[in-house]
Design a binder for these strands. Structure first.
Length: 113
DNA sequence: AGAATGACGCTGA
DNA sequence: TTCAGCGCCATTC
């Protein structure tokens, strides 16, 4: 068996974000045991072929804002549309009420209860 | 190998 | 609250 790659772990974790909930890059990184690797999470999502079953649009930055950049070639605006479709209000600058929709990541399994 | 880049995050002004 | 600066680290050149 081959250990899951970093990308695979990111995708598996993002898949666990429920509909109409939001997570930050840092949150996802920490949840897969890669604290401090928020940027790598962004790259992993960037490599995701679209469309995808992975709810990548539910991941935003810690400032509660969609990360807009030309390098995304429009996926940032698609992200805004997908979030609106889930009922999450997003203003023209990509800002959203992160606190009200923040996802609670699964905690590390305790050693023995 | 060394430098630049970036879908990030925290701190201080 | 907004903004600049710095730390971060895999990827890319």
């Amino acid at each position: 068996m081959e250990l899951p790659s970093f990308d695979q772990r990111v995708y598996a974790m993002v898949r666990r974000i429920p509909r109409a909930r939001l997570a930050t890059y840092g949150q996802v990184a920490e949840a897969i045991g890669a604290y401090g690797c928020a940027r790598q999470v962004g790259w992993a999502l960037r490599r995701l072929p679209l469309p995808s079953p992975v709810p990548w649009h539910r991941v935003v930055n810690a400032r509660g804002q969609i990360s807009f950049t030309p390098s995304r070639e429009g996926s940032d605006w698609i992200q805004r549309e997908l979030l609106l479709a889930e009922g999450i209000p997003v203003d023209a600058e990509g800002r959203l009420p992160l606190g009200r929709y923040l996802w609670v990541p699964p905690l590390d399994p305790p050693p023995l209860g």
